[in-house]
Design a binder for these strands. Structure first.
Lengths: 188, 188
DNA sequence: GTCTATAAACGGATAGAC
DNA sequence: GTCTATCCGTTTATAGAC
């Protein structure tokens, strides 16, 4: 049942993983050219400018993450939802030292066009909103702790997760991600 | 009493601010050349390779931050120490949309030599250690809340601050940094 | 759609004169 | 120390043949 990927799809996939590793200014059309096996001019056929490519990459990455979040069973207790989310966040670390694409692009944001900023902002808001609901549920259940408004706590939690993948990769350990998860769980 | 900066000092200063804005792969010797007013070959005289320059930049930046932390009055209550630390973290945001140099380099780490990784790790550890002591003091005083071991909580707090400056710059607001501070304070 | 060829600017880096 | 001059690979991007 495996479908052959088009050149266009391969380009976007590799662009995503390269950016998650080295950032926007750390990869080139030549890198993609070698990975996909076509000339750089062929990539320009699909994505005239690098900005076009990055925008498509963010769009596809966001869709993938949103789909994964929708697939989480709503009936689960909130602490288990958070555990799944944390695992999702850390999965790409083990795959190849990659961090969240939108966390990376947030670091590169001052070298990117406004359109990308808005796309990355949308990703942040969607994740924070999902986390806010989980926190709200967790407080009611007594499985999670969250001070103040759920939205505010969710922004802090999301920031902590983004910062933790950065540190986890820096130190070659996933322990820092687990520290974050433990901070929001009721049992110590 | 103002001292004239040497070319070498100007180079390092501008390298720091440029990297805090655009990252390691987002600035060039040419940028520095135009800012300082000397040719790129003159910069190579002081720093033969870009790696040499970034290493010196991290070293100087770390010294500055460590000095600022040592200047914090030990007699202050822990929540006020945290407030000062958060302000320090956010100061460069207002100055010119800059984030912590070592947070930025953590994002770029896969494109940098091992020496830089170790320097950035040292910066992380020093800050986390300082925050751990503040949290420990805060818990004793009742001014801060921290679950589990202070070291573990400090890592989460530091990650949350790093993630928050990223988000604050992305959204052009400092509110997200304040969310973090509020999460660790006892009063809601 | 993919290729060859090429443009034009940029990248880090070095040699040698002053 | 700083400059001019230069090297040489890289990068984004386009024109035009197939």
């Amino acid at each position: 049942m495996e479908t052959k990927l088009t050149v266009r799809e391969q380009v976007v996939d590799h662009a995503i993983t390269l950016m998650m590793l080295r950032g926007y200014n750390g990869f080139s059309y030549r890198d993609l050219s070698e990975l996909v096996g076509v000339k750089t001019s062929s990539i320009h056929y699909y994505f005239p400018s690098k900005d076009d490519l990055v925008l498509e990459a963010v769009s596809q990455y966001s869709d993938e993450v949103m789909h994964a979040l929708q697939a989480v069973d709503p009936a689960l207790p909130a602490n288990e939802k958070l555990a799944m989310y944390t695992r999702l966040f850390g999965k790409t670390l083990g795959d190849g030292n990659q961090i969240c694409l939108c966390g990376m692009l947030a670091a590169d944001i001052e070298t990117l066009p406004e359109t990308v900023r808005q796309a990355v902002q949308a990703f942040f808001r969607a994740n924070e909103s999902w986390l806010a609901k989980v926190l709200e549920q967790g407080v009611k259940e007594g499985t999670l702790v969250a001070k103040g408004k759920p939205e505010s706590a969710a922004r802090t939690l999301f920031a902590a997760l983004q910062g933790s993948v950065l540190a986890s990769r820096l130190f070659h350990t996933k322990a820092r991600l687990e520290d974050v998860e433990a901070t929001w769980k009721t049992v110590s």
